[in-house]
Design a protein around this nucleic acid. Structure first.
Lengths: 225, 225
DNA sequence: GATGATCATGCCCCATGGGGTAATTGCGAG
DNA sequence: CTCGCAATTACCCCATGGGGCATGATCATC
């Protein structure tokens, strides 16, 4: 029996859950005034927020103790920062997590904006920042994150199922998905027809496919070459 | 018998064919010096080129007599132009054709660059333009065009085949692709099993599917809901 | 009124898919 | 050494897919 009891669900817990579902925004800016103002705005809109006064701080947290936020997530960061600027952050971010990035900048040159977009930034916001513009950009970034996560989850799920197949089962599932007939498969692999049927049946079960059509789709989406 | 004889294939025709395969770049700039310089560079690289001194001119040609260039194609355009600027061109271009757009600009503000990227421009080149940078951007734009065309061709091909199906055949093909069994389909539609088999067979023939697995893929890629 | 496309059906045939039962072999873990 | 797992096979069963052959109905077009 655990020594620490589970906390009861309260109203504030519900609010927290709603914020998570709506999305989390990591805000990074060395100007604490702007940081607080943006956080207030986003919190008011019902988003979960997290603030850092330096990109380094955030990368440290990301590298060492990542609690893996549930739900869509994005980073909103100022380009001009003392230690690590927005462009460098984008590079690190692409390696560690695939979090979409929004950059903010006061009077910056076109070169900076162009570099940012080439590096794959979702949007580049010019100060003074319009609230509607910001919320629109946030929406786009979170949508991107959401779709990205959905795709990752499906792929991971399929990969897990495929991993439970034995070599023979995987091979035969592959051939079935290619439209090869049991008889041909048996002749090709020099095994009995009954054996092919068995492996095919097991593969269908393990992959959670109710019929051959499902198997074809699973094979295509799950990179079963 | 035609009055105009077909021209014999010459060496220059071969060169033209090679240029078409490599890609075409439509260059638009009101500065004729730059226009000529860029065309010379791209021609030297083996690309097919087309030049206009105004975006209006190009849009006119695009609207009235479009000979549909075979192969990948993109537009390289200066942002600052008297009548119609690059951003407006991007809007029109998105409607008429899906040609990827590259914008060039001398000392422009970040606002312009950001607007361009938001509008979906492939890249934004800042003058003075580096030749390697330009060629890299061209390569990216043409690749995008190429993938886009490939996708369009496949969809059009599938749509054509699906269009030859009768309503019943399409319906039954859809159900088969969903994994429904002939017996169930017959019961659902209140028709005889033999009838289902006939439609299924016809659908397979018309869609060019050799087996059920092919049908599933065709149905998925061809938007057969 | 003839003709062709589309949809529909019944009977019959064989190949194929799906699966139960039972048995054998080989291999790695406990 | 024994046990479980994977792979394999034979024999047998029924349901399903695929398709030939003949027939009929409806509807639009020429």
């Amino acid at each position: 029996m655990p020594t620490v009891l589970r906390k009861p669900v309260t109203v504030s817990d519900q609010h927290l859950a709603e914020r998570c579902a709506r999305g989390r925004i990591v805000i990074i800016d060395d100007d604490s005034e702007i940081l607080n103002a943006i956080e207030a705005l986003l919190a008011l809109e019902g988003y979960a927020t997290e603030t850092y006064s330096s990109a380094i701080d955030y990368l440290q947290v990301l590298t060492y103790n990542r609690p893996h936020f549930p739900g869509p997530s994005c980073v909103l960061c100022d380009v001009k920062m003392p230690e690590l600027d927005g462009l460098q952050l984008q590079c690190r971010l692409a390696e560690l997590a695939d979090t979409p990035l929004l950059l903010m900048s006061g009077a910056s040159g076109a070169e900076e904006a162009v570099s940012a977009f080439r590096a794959g930034v979702v949007d580049f916001l010019l100060k003074p920042i319009d609230a509607d513009m910001l919320l629109h950009a946030i929406g786009k970034a979170l949508l991107e994150s959401s779709e990205q996560q959905t795709l990752h989850h499906r792929h991971a799920e399929l990969a897990k199922r495929i991993a439970t197949l034995t070599e023979r089962e995987r091979d035969i599932a592959k051939r079935v998905a290619h439209g090869q007939i049991n008889r041909d498969i048996a002749d090709t692999l020099h095994i009995a027809l009954r054996t092919v049927k068995l492996h095919r049946q097991r593969a269908l079960e393990k992959l959670g496919a109710r019929n051959t059509a499902d198997l074809v789709r699973i094979a295509d989406e799950g990179n079963l070459s």
